[in-house]
C-alpha cells in the first residue's frame, strides 16, 4: 500500500517537474523569438516543411470531415424542413470549431511527431552537444524557426481547411439536400462574420505554440537512444492532441464570454 502511494507520489512529482521544465523552456524560447539573430534559412525550410508538406493531409482530411458533418446536419435539418440552414450550421461547426481543431490535430500528428523525432535523434547522436560546442544556441537554431513557421503556417492551413470543408459541405448540399449552391454559399457568406472568423483564427495561433513548444521540448528531453525517440514521439502526439482539445474548450469559453455570447 505504502509502496504504491510512494510510486504515485514520485510520479506526480516527476510530472510537476516536467511541467516546470516545460514552462521555463517556453519562457526562454519566447524571449529568443523576439530578439535576433534569426536563422532565416532555417525559417524558410520550416515554412516549406510545415506548410507545403502538411497541405495535402489537411486538404484530404478536412474535405471528407466537412462532407461527413454536412451529411449528419442534413439528416437532422430535413426532419424539420430547414435544409437551407446547412450553410449556417457548417460555418458554426467548421469555422469556429472543427476547422482549427482538426487542422491542429493533423499538423500535430505529422509535424509535431517529425520535430520530436528529428531533435530527439540529433540529441541521441550528440548533434545538439556539437551545436553548443560550436557556439550555437540550439533553442535559437532549432526551436525559434519551428515556432515562427508554425505560427505563420497553422492559421494559413486552417483557412484552407475551412474553405475545403465548406466546399465539401456544398457538394452534400447540392447532391443530397437538394439545396442550390447559390443559396448554400449565400448562407455561408451571411454567417461568415468577423466574430466567427475571430473565434476560428485565434485557436490556430494557440495550437501552433503548443505543438512547436511541446514537440521541441520532448525532442530535447529524449533519453534512451532510438527507443527513447519512439517513446518521445508518441508522447508528443498524445500531449499535443489532448492539449489542443482542452485549449479548444478553454478558448471557446473565454472568447464567447469576451464577445458576450
Amino acid at each position: 500500500m505504502f509502496k504504491a502511494l510512494n510510486g504515485f507520489e514520485s510520479r506526480i512529482k516527476e510530472q510537476l517537474l516536467g511541467l516546470q521544465d516545460l514552462t521555463l523552456f517556453s519562457v526562454r524560447i519566447l524571449g529568443l523569438s523576439v530578439s535576433g539573430p534569426f536563422y532565416v534559412h532555417d525559417l524558410y525550410e520550416q515554412l516549406h516543411f510545415m506548410g507545403v508538406g502538411s497541405l495535402h493531409l489537411v486538404v484530404l482530411s478536412t474535405f471528407f470531415a466537412g462532407q461527413g458533418m454536412a451529411i449528419q446536419f442534413v439528416r437532422e435539418l430535413r426532419s424539420m424542413g430547414t435544409e437551407m440552414y446547412l450553410g449556417k450550421l457548417m460555418v458554426v461547426a467548421i469555422v469556429r470549431a472543427l476547422g482549427p481543431t482538426l487542422t491542429g490535430i493533423v499538423v500535430a500528428s505529422r509535424t509535431g511527431a517529425g520535430i520530436t523525432a528529428e531533435i530527439g535523434s540529433m540529441k541521441s547522436a550528440n548533434q545538439i552537444d556539437a551545436l553548443i560546442a560550436f557556439g550555437t544556441d540550439p533553442g535559437r537554431k532549432l526551436v525559434v524557426p519551428r515556432l515562427l513557421a508554425l505560427l505563420v503556417m497553422l492559421p494559413c492551413l486552417t483557412l484552407i481547411a475551412d474553405m475545403v470543408s465548406l466546399f465539401g459541405g456544398s457538394l452534400v448540399s447540392v447532391y443530397q439536400a437538394h439545396v442550390s449552391a447559390i443559396s448554400y454559399w449565400s448562407m455561408v457568406r451571411a454567417y461568415l462574420t468577423p466574430e466567427n472568423i475571430t473565434v476560428g483564427m485565434v485557436k490556430p495561433v494557440a495550437y501552433a505554440f503548443i505543438i512547436s513548444i511541446v514537440s521541441c521540448w520532448k525532442g530535447f528531453t529524449t533519453e534512451g537512444g532510438t527507443r527513447g525517440v519512439g517513446r518521445s514521439t508518441t508522447e508528443t502526439v498524445v500531449i499535443c492532441v489532448v492539449s489542443i482539445l482542452i485549449t479548444d474548450f478553454v478558448l471557446t469559453r473565454v472568447i464567447f464570454t469576451w464577445l458576450g455570447w
Binding site: 540529433m122 547522436a125 550528440n126 548533434q127 552537444d129 556539437a130 560546442a133
Partner: peptide, 8 residues
C-alpha cells in the same frame, strides 16, 4: 564527438 556527430 563519439561517432562523429556530423549534422546529417
Amino acid at each position: 564527438f563519439q561517432d562523429g556527430a556530423l549534422f546529417d
